[in-house]
Computed example of a mutant assay.
Amino acid sequence: MTERSAPARAMPAVGRRDFIRLAGATAAGWLALGAAADRMRVVASITGLPLDDELTRRNMTDTTTSRLGGLIGGLKQRGWVEGVNIRFEVRSSFGAPAKLQAAIRELLDLKPDVILTSSTIETAAVMAATTTIPIVFATANDPVGNRFVASLAHPGGNVTGFTSSTAEMGGKWLQLIEEAVPGLTRVGILFNPATTPRAGRFFLDSIEQEAAASGMTVEAVPVDSAADIDAAISRFSNPPRAAMIALVDSFLVINRQAVVAAAARYRVPMIYPFHYFVDAGGLMSYGPTLEVRAADYVDLILRGTRAGDLPVQSPRKYELIINRTVASSLGLKLPFTLLARADEIRE
């Protein structure tokens, strides 16, 4: 177990186009590593977050721990250098549904060699637009159930990528929040049916099974707009003792500040699937450790490997993060057995 303070503020945003330049090497030096020099390759990326979102800015910095920075650094090690033999293009689909289609059209017009997607929604939309350009999803739940791939071992088609959670995670979230909140009798499950896997059922089944075994009452709390978040969470501020679980959901990630603020305002303990929510002031999270592994696949695809021949990879490690200061503000005295299992405790 390690104890660390919250991470430092993200680096400021950089330009929309050609936003990261990795310098310090000549073209000849990097081409010696074996990357093709016949033409400039285009790696396109689409995200559901606004480009000025703090999480987007963090992912677009040139550090190896950021998603895009790690990708660029990993490709650089393999001989692909921004501005020399590869170019990165990023578009945001944030906004009305038409914005998603417009962003995809912009990227397709660039004739990219590979497209990286950030969520289930973007992956489905890009797949509907092309069956030939290789697609690598950075995070996806239930890629087989969503018909992104034929199987995890043999995806087929033009798509592969990385999963972020299994259905059994739902039951694990319930166990953890029950351990953190003594006397807990009911739990609300917050999600947007339009943006969470199988409209919520992907995780709800295991949550309900765990609840039945422990005598807990579980209530699904669907929301479909940011304006619904406050009222949805306020319902769990009254007796009997209640808590909430936020599902894996791109809508909730985009609106994480509003979710965390409402949970604090109404003093509702909530567990989240990603550390992004704890970064915003949330109580605790349990989810996959961020590993930037896309460079391996993008490199292979740029060298001619079919995306469908690359197996979908699952997380190799999960992490439990707890903010003890937030717990104290909610009147929670967390048991030592829970704290001892935490990978990170924030004060």
Rank of each mutant, 00 (worst) to 15 (best):
E106R: 15
L108H: 11
I121Q: 12
I121V: 14
L100Y: 00
V126C: 01
L107T: 13
A125S: 14
I121S: 08
P97E: 02
L116V: 04
I133Q: 01
Q101C: 09
E122W: 05
L110T: 12
A96C: 04
D109C: 02
T132K: 07
L110D: 13
A124P: 00
V126M: 10
K111G: 01
L110F: 10
S92A: 00
T120M: 08
A103G: 11
A103D: 02
S119F: 12
L116R: 02
E106D: 15
V126R: 11
T131M: 04
E122T: 13
I115C: 03
S93K: 13
M127F: 07
L107G: 14
M127R: 15
A98M: 04
L100C: 01
T123R: 06
D109T: 13
A98Q: 01
S118T: 05
M127T: 04
I121L: 12
F94V: 09
I121C: 01
A98R: 02
L107P: 14
T123N: 00
K99I: 04
D109A: 15
T117I: 00
A98S: 07
M127V: 02
M127L: 14
I104P: 12
K111M: 00
I104W: 14
P97G: 05
P97A: 03
A96H: 09
L100R: 07
T132R: 10
A128N: 12
D113A: 08
A124W: 03
L107D: 14
S118I: 01
K99P: 01
K99F: 00
L108R: 14
S92E: 03
L107E: 14
A129I: 05
S118D: 06
K111Y: 00
T130D: 09
F94N: 12
S118R: 05
I115H: 08
T131A: 12
R105D: 15
A125I: 07
A98V: 04
G95S: 09
S93T: 08
L107K: 10
T120G: 08
G95Q: 06
A128C: 01
V114K: 04
A125E: 09
S118H: 10
P97N: 07
T117A: 06
S119E: 09
T117H: 00
A102S: 15
A129L: 11
P97M: 06
T132W: 08
A129T: 08
D113C: 03
A103C: 04
T132Y: 02
S119M: 10
L108I: 13
I121M: 11
Q101V: 10
S92C: 04
L116C: 02
T132C: 03
I115F: 05
G95T: 06
A125P: 10
A128V: 02
I104E: 13
I115V: 10
R105F: 11
T123L: 01
A129M: 06
G95K: 11
T117D: 07
T131V: 02
A125F: 12
A103F: 05
A124N: 05
T132S: 13
A102T: 11
T130S: 10
L107F: 14
A125C: 11
P112E: 09
A125L: 07
T120Q: 09
A96Y: 03
I115Q: 02
S119T: 13
L108Y: 11
M127E: 07
D109E: 15
S118C: 07
T123I: 01
A128L: 08
A96I: 07
I104Q: 13
I104K: 12
T123Y: 01
